[in-house]
Design a protein around this nucleic acid. Structure first.
Lengths: 260, 260
DNA sequence: CGCTTCTTTGACGAGCCTCAAACTGAGTGG
DNA sequence: CCACTCAGTTTGAGGCTCGTCAAAGAAGCG
């Protein structure tokens, strides 16, 4: 049964969360225990179910223990834009929004979540500063992902977009302890990829085939393999953390008209 | 002399900020006065100057009093993606980030700013709950703009993108008290529009011409006029975000405040 | 198995990009 | 006051990327 990718230990459902948050900031034993105890308040969702509705009331804060979800918006004519994916270990609705949700959240697979309320309580109450920092860093990272996604949509070709996106998923999943430096689960249809990357299904398919043909990736039955991360990184200009600084931009910027 | 658009009252440099924040949440007289007193600590930037560098240290929190700026990222080959624009009345670096900046911020025109530190101090210290709510709502609105922009880039045609973007600017500027229901200042070159909308300069030009030809907009010397907002709205599926009216009781500020 | 969902392939067209050059307008300096 | 320059806008021609339409394979699933 380990022929597949690393099985989530059903015995330690919150290990993914712990692992991911520890990657952002060190957690004390007590904080880790606090997280593990969230196992009491679990909840399941079916694929396709909405975890939150855009414009609707703020959802409960949760961590995802298994399964994938996405944030999205749908235009009246049916066009859909997916803003990003929620993977095991990720949380959502963690910032206690007082206002309506900004995006719809939909389960893309069967999903298991845990109530994050106690963890938030502790973090905000000052009783778990390491956890608080980890959550802040995670939220910040999520914002970074949104910006990366925007660059893909606005300024990268289909080929670059797909490469960049796969590298991003690989990294996120490895941090969470799912998948390794090459292989990771990818339970997304090409339609979903298309709606995330701003492409048509057909073109996603052709782009994937090109990457396969060139020996850069493999894709079968829900598992992706990056055969040449180096090369993929070059193609997509993929960088983990924004480079320290000092990249002189070759392009002139700004104009000299008077202020508005 | 008022042949141009509404002149910023140089006598009340912070009025734009007050006006914009009041649109998000009511402000007490004391809170408004607090904002107006920020006029002491002003600073000027030249067009093209960087107000913050991606990956660099967190910038000081500021409000923009006049002029436009943008958040952007530049790829190694020179391609640029503009994430959004900062208009008079807007603030930036307000969330006291402990981590490096996520985007570069560049002045697109000559710019005047005010130090927002005292206002943040008061808001976070619980001495100005109305202001705190306004700032939160403003931050949330900014996130909404980012998502709107993403939909434009991923799932709208050039024609729709331009229409949607112009409507968004019109709305933001009217709220801030600049421009009216039709006219507003637009100190952007077509190159900047292109880099924001994920298009080429040439195509932006052609798209603008089409909108002009159809009698929907007018553009001359830094001023935009929306001749038919209704029609533009249909084209772009433009919808205003629901007003932040129903802001519930005073509550913790969430994860935005720094950990103990 | 028979159905549905997903993937793959081909043919064709459209949207948008690139290259190139002409045009406009606002400085700038002789 | 008139070149002259330079940034920005506009226009044309041609081509590549990507979308649409259509239909034929795979692949999961009851």
């Amino acid at each position: 049964m380990t022929g597949r990718l690393a099985p989530r230990s059903a015995l330690r459902p919150l290990e993914v969360v712990v692992r991911r948050l520890r990657a952002f900031n060190a957690l004390s034993e007590a904080e880790q225990e606090l997280l593990r105890n969230l196992a009491d308040r679990r909840e399941r969702f079916a694929s396709g179910e909405e975890l939150a509705a855009e414009g609707g009331p703020p959802g409960r804060p949760r961590f995802i223990l298994s399964g994938w979800a996405c944030r999205q918006r749908v235009l009246p004519d049916g066009r859909r834009q997916i803003f990003g994916f929620l993977l095991p270990g990720d949380g959502f609705a963690l910032n206690r929004p007082l206002a309506p949700e900004l995006t719809t959240i939909v389960a893309l697979t069967a999903l298991e979540t845990a109530d994050a309320e106690p963890a938030l309580e502790a973090a905000l109450g000052g009783r778990a500063s390491g956890l608080a920092r980890a959550l802040l860093a995670a939220e910040r990272a999520e914002q970074g992902l949104l910006l990366d996604h925007m660059v893909r949509l606005g300024r990268q070709t289909a080929y670059e977009r797909v490469a960049h996106f796969l590298l991003e998923l690989q990294h996120r999943l490895e941090v969470a302890g799912l998948g390794d430096s090459q292989r990771f689960p990818l339970p997304l249809t090409q339609e979903i990829l298309a709606d995330a990357l701003g492409l048509s299904i057909v073109h996603v398919n052709r782009t994937l085939q090109q990457l396969r043909r060139e020996g850069l990736i493999e894709l079968r039955s829900g598992v992706a393999i990056l055969l040449d991360r180096e090369q993929l990184g070059k193609i997509a200009d993929y960088r983990l953390a924004p480079p320290p600084s000092a990249a002189p931009s070759p392009r002139r910027v700004g104009l000299d008209s008077s202020p508005a």
